[in-house]
Amino acid sequence: MTHFDHLKPEIAETLTWTTEDRIYFAQQNHWISYPRAKEIMTRLEDQLAHPRVQRMPNTLLVGESGNGKSTLIDRFREKHPVKILPSGEPLAPVIVMEMPSEPNEGRFWTELLLSLKIAHRDTDPVQRKENQAISVLTYVQARMLIIDEIHNVLHGSARQQRHFLGMLKRLSNKLQLPLVAVGTRDSILALHTDTQLSSRFEPLALPRWQLDVSFLRLLASFERLLPLAEPSQLSSQDIAIKLHSMSGGTIGGVATVLKRATVKAIRDGKEHIDAKLLDNIGWVKLSDYGKEALKL
């Protein structure tokens, strides 16, 4: 398939599919590696392999909404799936959960038990849910707990925040379990409610993308995954500038714009993305939503 050298071989094969199947494929998420993501993945691997000590190293992964934090965490979890040992016991090295909408201890243990797929009752006492969660984490030999949306800690009173962060510190100490907190820049404020806990978290940032060589390489990587028969030259100057503006400099924004543009290109029989097509996908940046709403 030398005619489709702009695509990965497995992507080129999708060009023979029906229009509906190609559109379905175009709307799926695909992992794209890039230098900063590799650095963070390596850091998480080192943390996962860290020997159990009294004061475990923790990580705070910070980034703008839509800039790939959750995708990166999902990728890391996929690399360390649940396994069944020959003895029949489960082994779950990486546990990922979502922080409840407020720093409520009972709801935290509920969310953790749901992530562990453990049956329980919401009305159970907090201590009972905590004992159950800790017992399961020990049983499955968990080596890391990742808590997404950690900035939700700020949605409680100062007293609630201190109590909740104290609970996280006790959990980490008790199980000698490294924590990875994931969230927006507000997460830094959230963890600084407890100075002892915040000192244990090493910050890792996923900054917005600048319009530079790294961004052009990212676009080139995306192009190899788009099921379109013709090259789109996404890294060319005019298209790169437009995509950077439309996406707001986030990798999630780029992915969403390109998904919509790819679908339109397939439906229109155009088979490539250009500046004119991008102008006609009906895209409104998040920062412009308020302005558009005023026009309604």
Rank of each mutant, 00 (worst) to 15 (best):
N29G: 03
I239V: 15
M99R: 06
V126N: 07
V284W: 05
L278N: 05
P227K: 02
A37R: 14
L189S: 14
L206F: 09
A220P: 00
E78N: 13
T59E: 02
A261V: 09
E149W: 05
K285Q: 14
R224Q: 14
D274E: 11
S187F: 02
I188P: 00
S187P: 02
L44G: 03
S232W: 05
I281A: 08
M246R: 03
L171Y: 11
D288Q: 15
G63H: 07
L216W: 05
P100R: 07
S187Y: 04
T184R: 02
G269N: 10
V140D: 07
F164I: 03
L278H: 02
L204S: 07
L165W: 06
P86G: 05
Y289H: 13
L61T: 01
T184H: 03
Q237Y: 10
F222Q: 06
I147F: 07
K259R: 15
V136G: 00
E45K: 13
G249P: 04
K83W: 02
L278W: 03
E13T: 13
L179Y: 08
V62D: 00
S221A: 15
K8P: 00
V284F: 03
E292D: 01
T184V: 10
L189C: 01
A240F: 06
Q210H: 11
H6S: 08
G253F: 03
L7R: 02
K259M: 13
Q54V: 09
R185Q: 11
R200F: 07
I73H: 01
G183I: 01
T42Q: 13
P207V: 06
V62W: 00
D5S: 14
V153D: 00
L175Y: 07
Q210C: 01
I73D: 02
N152Q: 11
M167G: 03
R55Q: 13
G253K: 05
L177S: 07
S172K: 04
N58I: 04
Q132C: 09
F4H: 15
Q196G: 09
M246V: 04
A133Y: 04
S101I: 11
I147E: 01
V126M: 10
P51G: 10
H3C: 05
P93M: 05
L48Y: 10
E223P: 06
V140Y: 11
S157L: 08
S172Y: 06
Q28F: 01
D21S: 12
P203N: 07
F76E: 04
H244C: 05
R260H: 12
N29D: 15
L113K: 04
L206H: 04
M1T: 11
A293K: 11
H151L: 01
V140H: 06
T19L: 15
T250Y: 03
V94M: 07
P227Q: 11
I32C: 03
Q141W: 05
S235V: 00
P35L: 11
I281S: 09
T110C: 08
T123H: 09
Q28S: 13
H3T: 14
Q27V: 00
Q132M: 14
L296H: 12
K83E: 14
T193W: 00
E89I: 01
S247T: 04
Q141G: 04
Q141K: 15
V94H: 05
K295S: 13
Y139D: 14
T2L: 12
R200C: 08
L91K: 11
I84R: 12
I40V: 15
A229M: 07
K174R: 14
W31K: 05
K169R: 15
R36K: 15
L286G: 11
W109V: 04
L114E: 12
L216F: 09
P90L: 10
K270H: 10
